[in-house]
Structures are given as structure tokens and as C-alpha cells.
């Protein structure tokens, strides 16, 4: 077997053992995957983008499983279809954040006045409320999907940096880093070969937390009409449509997309919890 094959097999085995010790991770991942697959491939009973003006605000029935909203959109079709848009957006945003934030955090863990100054700068930045920041970024940069990803990136990169940096700072004091340095490893090699593998765990847990938050942020953005282009379905936008109806008792317009957000966020939180528990147990 090739070297690469052996390594993938090893990673797979490790993954399975993690799943066995923390079943919550498996449950969370399965739910997210199921939602994604449903969003992309599930045949929908009605068009998610074409309303039926003759059937507005119908309660859930055998015809419209989740009812219809005040414009005559089928809530079931839209709730499912929105998963194909909201979930990938959140996932792309968080993975890019990790990709940028983890190396930057490792770099910022080098001793020196600059790394301290950069972190103080991030403090100021981070004290700003997340959702407002994201809204400001997308509004000011233009109401486009790419800008939603950029907003998630700007919100999350400092978090990854801070987390990885604090882990790396305590790692730097340990024996094996000292040993690696003593035998003449370059700083870059120390980071790549010795520090990176030791921060992967916390970074993964943070990725999951960030994904959960990203879903919330995207929902909040589209709730305010930022970053969406109606009639394309998005959970936040659907909940917004339901605000008018809920004070008169038409609950289904809000509840079903709301449940979808809740399930997606909870799934990512489950994965994060499982990963964190594993970290705790390993220590």
C-alpha cells in the first residue's frame, strides 16, 4: 500500500475510534449531512421560488405539510431548499476562517512585542458585537453572497487566532519543542511539525462552534434582508416573513424554518461538545 493510502487509513481508524468514544460527534455530523443532502437532492412538492397567490397562509395540511406563508410560498419546500444555500455558506465561511486563522495564530505565538500588540488590537476588534459587525460589513461592501462569507471570515479569524495562540503559547514551554529547537529545527518547521498537530484538536472544536455561530449570523443577516435576494429561500428570510403572522397566531411560517436553524445549530454544537469532551478526557 502506498504511503498516502496508509495515512488515510490511519486517519480513518482514528476518526472511528473518536466516534466510538464520543457518539455525539457522529450524531451531529449525520444530522448536518442529512440536511445538506436533503437540501440538494430531495424532490420538492412545490417550487421553492414560485408562490401560489391563491393559497396564502394555509395551515399545515396533507397538501402543504408545513403550510404556506403570506405570499403563498410552500413552507416545506422552502425550508428544505434553504439548507442547500445556508449550510454551504456557513461551512465555507468557517473552513476558510480556520484555514487563515490557525496559521496566523501560530505565527502570533512567537515571543515579541509585535505579537502582543496585534493581540491587543484584536481585543478592541472583538469587543464589537458579532452580528452588528457582520451586518455592517455586508451592507457597506455590497449585498452579495461572497460578502457574507467575508463577514464570517472577519468575525471568526480573530477567534481562531486567539485560541490557537493561547494553546501554542503554553506548548512553547514544553520539553519536546525545546528539544526540537535544540537540534536546530527552523521556527517554521517547529510550527508545522510540532505545534500544529497539537492544536488541531482545539481548532476543530472551534471550527464546529464557529459553524454553529455562522448559521446564526446568516439567519440574522437574512432576517434583516441583508445578503439575500428574494425569492431565493433562506431560513432567516422565511422567519422574517412570519413576524407579521405570528402576532395573529399563524405560527407555522416562523416555527418550521426556525426549527431548521435550531437543528442545524444544535448539530454543530453537539459536534463541538463531543470534541471538547474528548480534549478534556485526553488531558
Amino acid at each position: 500500500m502506498s504511503d498516502l493510502g496508509k495515512r488515510t487509513l490511519e486517519i480513518l481508524k482514528r476518526f472511528l475510534s473518536v466516534l466510538r468514544s464520543q457518539p455525539a460527534i457522529g450524531v451531529g455530523l449525520t444530522v448536518v449531512l442529512a440536511m445538506l443532502l436533503a437540501g440538494f437532492f430531495l424532490p420538492l412538492p412545490y417550487s421553492p421560488t414560485r408562490p401560489d397567490p391563491l393559497n396564502v397562509l394555509q395551515p399545515p395540511s396533507s397538501l402543504h405539510w408545513f403550510g404556506t406563508d403570506s405570499d403563498g410560498f410552500d413552507v416545506f419546500s422552502r425550508t428544505i431548499a434553504a439548507a442547500a444555500r445556508d449550510l454551504p455558506l456557513a461551512l465555507i465561511g468557517t473552513f476558510l476562517s480556520a484555514l487563515v486563522g490557525v496559521p496566523l495564530g501560530l505565527l502570533a505565538s512567537t515571543k515579541g512585542p509585535w505579537s502582543e500588540r496585534i493581540m491587543r488590537g484584536l481585543d478592541v476588534f472583538q469587543s464589537f458585537p458579532l452580528v452588528i459587525l457582520a451586518i455592517a460589513i455586508v451592507t457597506l461592501m455590497g449585498n452579495r453572497l461572497e460578502n457574507v462569507v467575508i463577514a464570517i471570515l472577519i468575525v471568526n479569524v480573530p477567534r481562531f487566532m486567539r485560541l490557537v495562540r493561547s494553546e501554542a503559547l503554553s506548548l512553547r514551554e514544553s520539553r519536546f519543542i525545546e528539544a526540537a529547537r535544540a537540534v536546530g529545527a527552523t521556527p517554521i518547521r517547529v510550527m508545522r511539525k510540532h505545534m500544529f498537530p497539537n492544536v488541531v484538536g482545539v481548532a476543530l472544536a472551534q471550527t464546529s462552534i464557529a459553524a454553529a455561530q455562522a448559521i446564526g449570523i446568516i439567519a440574522a443577516l437574512s432576517f434583516l434582508g441583508v445578503g439575500v435576494s428574494p425569492p431565493n429561500p433562506s431560513w432567516g428570510l422565511m422567519i422574517q416573513t412570519g413576524v407579521r403572522s405570528i402576532t395573529t397566531g399563524d405560527w407555522w411560517v416562523v416555527v418550521f424554518p426556525g426549527l431548521a436553524v435550531l437543528i442545524a445549530v444544535a448539530a454543530f454544537n453537539l459536534v463541538a461538545d463531543g470534541l471538547q469532551m474528548r480534549q478534556e478526557n485526553e488531558r
Binding site: 454553529a212 412570519g242 402576532t247 444544535a266
Partner: peptide, 25 residues
């Protein structure tokens, strides 16, 4: 822990709308 995870997973605006539905309507 389950309760905390549930609370954490509800967007605040959804919680507000649900409260309006139950406690007001």
C-alpha cells in the same frame, strides 16, 4: 448540559417570536 445546548442553539430572534406567540397571542 442538554438544556444549555438547546438554549445556545436558539437564535435570539426566534426565541423572541416564540415567546410572543405563546405569552402574548
Amino acid at each position: 448540559r442538554g438544556t444549555v445546548t438547546l438554549f445556545q442553539s436558539i437564535p435570539d430572534f426566534l426565541m423572541a417570536l416564540l415567546l410572543i406567540f405563546f405569552l402574548f397571542y
